[in-house]
Amino acid sequence: MTANNIVEFRQVTKTFNVGREDEFTAIRDITFAIEDLHGHGEFISVLGPSGSGKSTILRLLAGLEPQHPPTSGQVLVSGVPVLGPGADRGMVFQDYTSFDNRTVLDNVAFGLECRGVSKTERYSKAREWIHRVGLNVASDGGKYPHELSGGMRQRVAIARTLILHPRIILMDEPFGALDPHNRYQMQDLLVTLWREVQATVFFVTHSIEEAVYLGDRVFILSRSPGTILHQIEVPAPVRPAAEMQREAEFQEKVFRIRDILEDLESVKKNQDATVT
């Protein structure tokens, strides 16, 4: 049985505009399972050519329309089909989605406010999380999003998600708009927080370095319609991002995956047969 899987996709296919001229299959026949290990959340990086349905997988898990529901197959979380969005599956987007009318403190406290948690309690928790993502409670807590840099906004987004203790965290290129220096910092922060909260993370990215550094496993999707071509196990991020990503062993892994991706970009569409 599958009750032991925190996430499971069973032959999931998503086709948009079924029966119309512009019918389009984003992902086809995706099957995988993430085991629910006690006290350890797995970190899954998702790589693939553009348009291969990486975001579709995330949004199916989040239960967000129009990707949800799947055209066929099942998306299960802890053995139960996903019916819609919920706070047990937090999501961080690439675009900055801090609520512009709320201060940092009120942004981070948003989810608790929706649950009806009292003001004193949610503010004290929010302050704790603002601190944990590396922001200054006293000087940043009262700021509005338009006063924050991109990196700070994503810290707010991460705090706002983690304060709700989701079992699953979905990240859709969250660091895509940041400069390299900021990106390393955010990667280190994410590793630290992830070790503390032990949630299952799905992390979509275009950066192979980022995928290899952060992930326990890297999923590589085929060209559209996406299927999972490879699942590669990679070493854990045991040293800081800027340091570890320079090491020869790490680089070799990155080059191997780059070769696979470049093949995918160049080879023609019909290659369903190569599914491993």
């Binding site: 599956r89 675009d95 989605t97 929706c114 649950r115 709700l164």
Partner: peptide, 18 residues
């Protein structure tokens, strides 16, 4: 108002009325 804000609120557990 950008759809992203709505989606963010949804994944933070907000109800439709909220």
């Amino acid at each position: 108002v950008g759809e992203r804000y709505v989606e963010t609120a949804l994944t933070l557990g907000a109800t439709r009325l909220q």
